[in-house]
Amino acid sequence: MATVTLENICKSFGKTDVIHGVDIDIADGEFIVIVGPSGCGKSTLLRMIAGLETVTSGEVRIGGRRVNDVEPMDRDIAMVFQNYALYPHMNVFDNMAYGLKIAGKPRAEIAERVAGAARLLQLEPYLDRKPRELSGGQRQRVAMGRAIVRKPAVFLFDEPLSNLDAKLRVQMRLEIRQLQRDLGVTAVYVTHDQVEAMTLADRMVVMHAGRADQIGPPLEVYENPATTFVAGFIGSPPMNFVPVGLVGLGAPEGTVLGIRPEHVELVSGSDRLHGTVVYAEALGAETLVHVRLADGTLATVRQDGTAPTPPEGSDVGLIWAEAHQKLFGADGTRL
């Protein structure tokens, strides 16, 4: 259990700058999810916390101690890798016991701790098996077990669920959250899946091209995105962006109005904004109606599944409560 602090972290691989100054303060026992598109530097950031990647500039602190030059094994962390990185030549028991053996723990304590983790993760029948004799979900659990037996201060996860099928992913997501709460360990979790981010995070960090665009609780980020990138990345379907010119708002050139699909309502006539229905996707509980606006941009309206759907090609008006609209400047930041 420890706090983790990143202070103005930058990272370059040779001449390529990958991370351009990230600041994050993680409280003791907090579950932080780093989310962002592929290649934005999530793994790199996590690996710098783990000590697997050197920090080009800035400072990493774990439990208040500067760890920039501390080896991974001395940082009191555990990491779950995307491919699990199990030791292929060792059975499940030895995979979990490895770290404890190196730490020189007595045999009895090792056996007890591994047994405890195996019970928690329902791995008891498989302790003698090699990783290649396990299913994907079981391997994932072994990787988790290996992390928890050592009782580290910080858990690091790099897309731990991305190799599982959808159903297992939901189940493991709940288990990870439960486990982290029970153990009270600080966790940093990397994913590109916004559902995982929304459901797991105490606070999430939305990364974009090597910067942390926004840090905050999931709903806060959803409600109040700091940039057009965050607004477009979090939420599915993403927020609609409408040039202010179309809505007749007096605002500087390039300003964009953002409005979530569920906040827009379709009416038969509106003096504010109108367009042509392109197509509608009926998903059962809800219907997504895609509307082409006068300047060609597409907007999405999320309707209740029971509401009447306007026919394709018909002219519709779009209205929304002013409280829900967000304005973004030409540089993409919130006004």
């Binding site: 783990a50 000590g51 697997l52 080896e71 991974p72 094994m73 962390i77 555990a78 990491m79 890798f81 491919n83 990185a85 199990l86 030791y87 292929p88 490895y98 770290g99 190196i102 730490a103 290996r146 050592r150």
Partner: peptide, 18 residues
Amino acid sequence: IPRSVIEAAAIDGARFWT
């Protein structure tokens, strides 16, 4: 040898020789 396996061992506390 997958690099992550070696990294996992490093995080588990194994130094170079181990």
